[in-house]
Amino acid sequence: MSTQPAAPRPSQLLPLDVAVDVLEGLPGGRVILTKVESLLNWGRAASLWPLTFGLACCAIEMMAAFAGRFDLDRIGVIPRATPRQADLMIVAGRCTIKMAPIVRRLWEQMPEPKYVISMGSCATCGGPFYYDNYSILKGIDQVVPVDVYVPGCPPRPEALIEGILKLQEKIKVEPFLRRAAAQA
């Protein structure tokens, strides 16, 4: 009778969300193997704290997204009233040229790593105030770097949620530590 031990399984790197499922499914499972970066990214993606910062109409839809029916809390998005505690800025609404330096300063006050969602067509490109208007900035990306653009005038709360989910996908695959190491 052959007593040959079973061949060792090739090492396998599970995606983090699958790994967590496996871990929870195993009785007594306590060990998880993952990359530190993936773990950090997973944690960061699951608790985005945006700055409560509304400019115009889109801010009302953003408020609706925070309220009961759409409930952004369930994907870990909790509004913070100060830029020092926030890592996400949702630029909701049109930004005037007078307001642009203040948006920039708020963005600079946020600690790294930080993300920007441009909500609505005014923040994205000037929207209906695009071609014959003297006071509105034609796109917030002239002032701060934008990660996700959410189209609409104004976008529905579902659209904003989709934008946040897209940003989460982006964060999950981000070479966050490697970039920091390269900069150091």
């Binding site: 400019l55 049109r94 005037t96 007078k98 105030f129 014959d132 006071s135």
Partner: peptide, 14 residues
């Protein structure tokens, strides 16, 4: 004021 001035009165003329 003026941080949200969207010059809508002027735009309406066009």
């Amino acid at each position: 004021i003026g941080y949200l001035h969207s010059s809508v009165e002027k735009m309406m003329e066009y």
